[in-house]
Design a protein around this nucleic acid. Structure first.
Lengths: 147, 147
DNA sequence: TTGAAAATATTGAATGTTCAAGAATTGAAG
DNA sequence: CTTCAATTCTTGAACATTCAATATTTTCAA
């Protein structure tokens, strides 16, 4: 009944590894679909967050889309060039910049959403609805317990 | 009883996002511990795979540690400089390079393993054993169903 | 009210990753 | 046997990310 010593357990049994592997695979699939519109996953996330129509500061956005500040700044630069989003100085706190989605961004976002929905449906089919919702629940709770 | 249209669901409900978030968080914690030895997570994975004492080709390794080939080549270059691992031409197929762990690498790997075990124990405490093993099971099955 | 500390975003240099191409070897069909 | 395609790894150039430093604005205590 003795557990095997963890030190010698293969890497494939570590939670960190399983998460990395699953994330890599799902992300690869999503990338593949979004590449139809030539957009990286992070840009889809940004558009999706901004598509509530409200202004979001860079810090807020960085947290929401899991990028650190300088990386986000440079990605936003590209998206501004592509006129998908635009910057507005926050009138209440001029240290902040508020990001908004443009009309062009909204159109693109809708297309991307439906590509992403395709993927979730594909997962639902091959993996099952029960497993999917249970996995989501466990992931949320893991994230919660890590703060 | 109608489900909300997926198109408008917030990004935080997507499986891809939850996976990215959980992975990021757990990885951040692990990085933090391994940084005590100044080693990135990927190098720990490499050492761990090689610590079975057998030679592993670059392709095999790249798959195992979730890096693509050129990235792995350059990371191995650094590890060779640090004399943690070494290359041997595969005598049976001279296209291949077999990687081996050095004695120094083994010593480091043991230290890293125990830092990683610390983390897994910490997760077990805050997240619970039942959730952890259930999450691992679901992740494995998701990975399986994606091939 | 002033001045120091905190918060926010950006920049530039260093570093790391990726893509496409190249070099070496093997396999296998003619 | 020879040649052509496939496999394996590495390289160099393009590109992206990160760290540390900077600029600006706000906050707040003295």
């Amino acid at each position: 009944m003795a557990k095997p010593p963890k030190e010698n357990s293969p890497i494939t049994e570590h939670l960190a590894y399983l998460l990395a592997q699953a994330n890599r695979e799902i992300n690869r699939q999503l990338e593949l679909r979004l590449s139809k519109e030539g957009v990286p996953v992070e840009q889809w996330r940004i558009l999706k967050v901004l598509s509530d129509g409200n202004g979001h500061s860079m810090g807020e956005l960085a947290d929401a889309v899991l990028l650190n500040h300088p990386t986000l700044t440079k990605m936003i630069d590209r998206m501004v060039s592509d006129t998908l989003v635009y910057r507005v100085q926050d009138p209440n706190d001029r240290r902040k910049v508020l990001m908004f989605i443009s009309d062009r961004g909204k159109v693109l976002c809708r297309k991307l959403n439906s590509l992403a929905v395709d993927q979730e449906e594909h997962i639902l089919e091959s993996y099952g609805g029960k497993s999917t919702s249970e996995l989501k629940r466990l992931l949320e709770s893991l994230i919660d317990s890590s703060n």
